[in-house]
């Protein structure tokens, strides 16, 4: 039985130091933070063994609030610094939390190469389809036709599908969830951290303040209902007519592949190097 949330908050959050937080009321980030610490509790990891690294943006503030080894890095570079930490100390569980702009615009190259390399890192990507902290500018996941402060007439670019991008780039574990499906998030994050390779959990989250407000979803409930109505599980998706899927996205596990991770491979390289 998982402990009550109050107990977990006291155990894992820097509750007496760093609150109140900077996020807007109703922000999906809180749901994700909750799912994250519940997943850590299930995994029974020591706080000293966990690293949470973030980039810049609203998601970048999450590490401040948790009582682990925490980092707030440069914009888009969380995975590069996480790579160094993991290689230098493989016993640590190194997790990054990034936003959609952080992970797939400025950090897009690092993201696909981390996936290709299959180093044992976990990337939690909060996709709220907008640059929230800087004031609602269009991001790589802002939908075609949506409004933002840098596409006030209409967004004429097409959105990345982050989870599918991660699968194509070779990540060994890829999942997508939403803040509406909060109970599922716990399990997806837990599985991602357990996976001994590069793991991605894309989480569709609501930024009703910067995205919803300009796109007829100005309150969190409307946005959560949008996620509810547009998310389909993989099984549901295969049984639905293709025409009805054009505005839907898949949630659940998209890839779970067992392949050699970088640390295992590099230990072989060390053995070979010493023989020479």
């Amino acid at each position: 039985m998982i402990a009550g949330m109050t107990e977990l908050r006291h155990k894992y959050l820097r509750h007496h130091k760093k609150f109140p937080h900077v996020w807007c009321s109703g922000c999906g980030n809180g749901i994700i933070l909750g799912a994250f610490i519940r997943a850590i509790e299930r995994l029974k990891l020591k706080k000293d063994d966990i690293v949470l690294a973030a980039g810049i943006g609203c998601s970048g503030r999450m590490p401040t609030y948790v009582d682990f080894n925490t980092l707030h890095t440069t914009h888009g570079r969380a995975l590069t610094i996480a790579t160094g930490i993991k290689l230098a100390r493989p016993s640590l569980f190194v997790i990054t939390v990034m936003g959609d702009g952080d992970a797939t615009a400025i950090g897009g190259n690092h993201f696909i190469h981390a996936a290709r390399r299959n180093l044992d890192l976990t990337a939690i990507i909060i996709n709220n389809q907008i640059y929230g902290m800087t004031g609602g500018q269009a991001s790589p996941t802002t939908p075609y036709g949506a409004q933002s402060t840098t596409s006030i007439f209409s967004n004429i670019e097409h959105a990345f599908s982050i989870a599918e991008l991660a699968v194509a780039a070779g990540a060994s574990f890829v999942a997508r969830g939403t803040v509406y499906h909060a109970a599922q998030l716990d399990k997806l994050i837990e599985k991602a951290i357990r996976n001994k390779g590069f793991s991605v959990v894309e989480i569709m989250s609501n930024c009703h303040v910067q995205f919803g407000r300009r796109n007829k979803m100005a309150d969190p409930v409307t946005m959560l209902n949008w996620f509810k109505d547009h998310a389909v599980s993989r099984d549901e998706g295969t049984s639905m007519p293709p025409d009805s899927l054009h505005d839907k996205f898949t949630i659940g596990i998209l890839a779970d592949e067992d392949k050699p991770n970088y640390i295992e491979e590099y230990s072989k390289i060390r053995k070979r190097a010493k023989r020479n």
Binding site: L71, R77, T80, I81, T83, G84, I85, A88, L92, H113
Partner: peptide, 17 residues
């Protein structure tokens, strides 16, 4: 690494560890 930005990032991470 994939570029020099990432290279120095990884170096900083390893030093932090």
């Amino acid at each position: 690494m994939e570029d020099e930005i990432a290279s120095l990032g990884a170096v900083i991470g390893a030093s932090l560890a």
